[in-house]
Structure formats: structure tokens, C-alpha cells
Amino acid sequence: MEPLPLPAFDDNYIWLLRDAAGRALVVDPGDAAPVLAALGDGPPPHAILVTHHHPDHIGGLRALLERWPGTPVYAPHEERITDASHRVGDGDELAIGPWRFRVLAVPGHTRSHVAYVGEGLLFCGDTLFSLGCGRMFEGTPAQMHASLSKLAALPGDTRVCCAHEYTQANAAFALAVDPDNPALRARARDIHALRAAHRPTLPARLDQERACNPFLRCDDPVVRAAAQRHAGRLLADAAEVFGALRAWKDGFRG
């Protein structure tokens, strides 16, 4: 079972899973066109999963529901997602076609952001990116750090299916934080080769992210020291390190 990233807009991915009969699970359809093109005249999807309310994640819902009326849409308890048929929260268990997923609340990017984990896959929207993380539009550094720590605790062979192709830019920042990390340097070389060949860098393995992604390593002395140097002050704990890293990344031009 291979998750398929469908490119949308400038750098989004809409994720697609297909079962043996060709029926699909669709994740974060910001645009209906790539989904309609991929599924063609095949059977309707089993369901649609939504991680959060931003338009580049839900903008295609109405058109998909017009094409396949009654398709279940699973989304967080969020009034800004008006096309949901099933509301989900932390710890909920979902049975969708042949697949089983657990819902994780991961606030920070937005207040109601959720992720879906199961079948060795993590659909994490804009919370965790390969070698990076999402901006905090509605949450606090402590919330976002806790959400990322929750994701980092999943099994190492979990494949991370995030919603944007940001990995190459994130690698530049990660190397500014931790330039002597051999795993990160190797990952950066792989990313460069993949993008030069116009191939996606995703999904990524979670154990690789734990070794390379500075936002998952806020307890690491090297990452802490880099964050403190950039912030110009001592940082009390991992959540403060995270906040300093995120502020650094917000203004980073690599």
C-alpha cells in the first residue's frame, strides 16, 4: 500500500490511498481537480480526511461531494469546515474501508488541527514537515512543541505524509542550525537529487526525522546551543528552544 502524493497549487500534496478494488481514501483535498483526474471514472472514494480548515486543505471538498454525493468527510471539531459529515477528536478510532486510523489532536498551526495515524502512515497536514514544522497561526510554542513531541513518539518506521513540498528549503535551515550532523547532510544530498529529478521528497521516515529535524530535537545540546546563540539569551526548556527555532525559521533566508 503506497500513499500517492498528488501535486496541487505551488507546493501542496493531496494524499491518496487505494485499496485492492481501486477505491480511494483522500486526504486534505485543497483542489478537486487532481483528485478527479487521478480517480477518473473509477468507484467513489471510501472517505475524505481533513486535518485543518485552511483553504488549501479543504477548497476541493464541495466539488468532490458534488461528484460523489454522500462521501464521508472526517474533520476536526471546527466550525470553519462546513462540509464535514463526521467530527473527530483526539483518540478517536476510524475504520475506513480496509484501513484503520487513530486521530491525534495536534494544535499549534491551528487551534483544531488533527493528524491521522495508522497502517504505518502519518497524515499530519501542516504540523510536521520533513525537516521542519508548520507556522503557528493560532497556537503557542508550548502547544506546537507538545504536538510535535506526540508525533515524534510514534514508531520510527512510520511514514510521514505531510501536505507541502518544503523539504529542500527546510534542509537549508536545518543545516544552519546543525551543520555537522552527518545524517542531516546525507539527507540534504538525497533531497537535492530527488528535486533535481522532479521527484517528491515524501513520504519521509519518522526515525529519519528524529535524527535530522531540528524541531524534533529541542532537547539536543547542539540544537539548544544554536537556538540560544541566535536568540542571544539562555532558553529555559525545550519549549523555549522550539519557540526560538520557529522565530529564527520565520525570518530565515537560506
Rank of each mutant, 00 (worst) to 15 (best):
V50P: 02
G132W: 02
G134T: 07
Y166I: 05
T110V: 02
A174M: 00
S130R: 02
V160A: 00
A63I: 07
G60H: 11
F123D: 03
P34M: 11
A115I: 02
S149H: 06
A63T: 09
G120P: 03
A37N: 06
G125H: 01
G132T: 02
H46N: 13
A172N: 06
E66K: 13
D56L: 14
G156C: 08
L121R: 05
A146H: 03
F123L: 12
W68F: 14
L122M: 06
L104T: 02
H109C: 04
L104W: 04
I96Y: 12
D92T: 07
V160P: 03
T110H: 07
L39H: 05
R135I: 09
C161D: 07
D56S: 15
R80A: 15
H54M: 14
A33R: 15
A115V: 07
P72V: 12
P45L: 08
L131A: 01
G125S: 05
L36G: 01
V106G: 01
A176F: 07
A105P: 03
H109E: 02
G118E: 09
E79Y: 09
L122N: 00
L131F: 04
G97C: 10
A105N: 03
A95T: 14
L65P: 07
D157C: 08
I48W: 11
A63S: 14
L94G: 00
G40F: 12
L121I: 02
Y116W: 12
P107V: 05
H113Q: 10
P141N: 03
S85M: 10
F101P: 02
G40T: 08
L151H: 01
L122F: 04
A152D: 02
P34N: 11
G125Y: 00
G91T: 03
Y166S: 12
G70M: 13
L65C: 03
L175G: 03
D157A: 12
Y74R: 06
P55C: 06
P141W: 03
M144C: 06
H53N: 11
C162H: 12
V117W: 15
H54Q: 15
E66W: 10
H109M: 05
H113Y: 08
P43E: 12
R62T: 14
N170H: 13
A176H: 06
D126P: 06
A153P: 00
A95K: 11
T51H: 14
A115Q: 04
A142S: 05
P107N: 10
H52V: 09
G42C: 12
D41A: 15
L39E: 09
L94W: 11
E138V: 01
A75I: 10
D83H: 15
A152R: 02
A174Y: 07
E93L: 15
W99M: 12
Y116N: 03
F137M: 14
A172E: 14
V50A: 09
V106Y: 04
I81S: 01
A37I: 07
V103L: 08
L36S: 06
G97V: 08
A171M: 08
V35Q: 08
H113D: 09
D126K: 02
T140R: 11
E119Q: 11
M136F: 06
L148M: 05
C133V: 01
S130T: 11
V106W: 05
L104P: 05
F123E: 04
S149C: 12
R102N: 08
I81L: 14
G59I: 04
G89I: 00
T140H: 09
G120M: 02
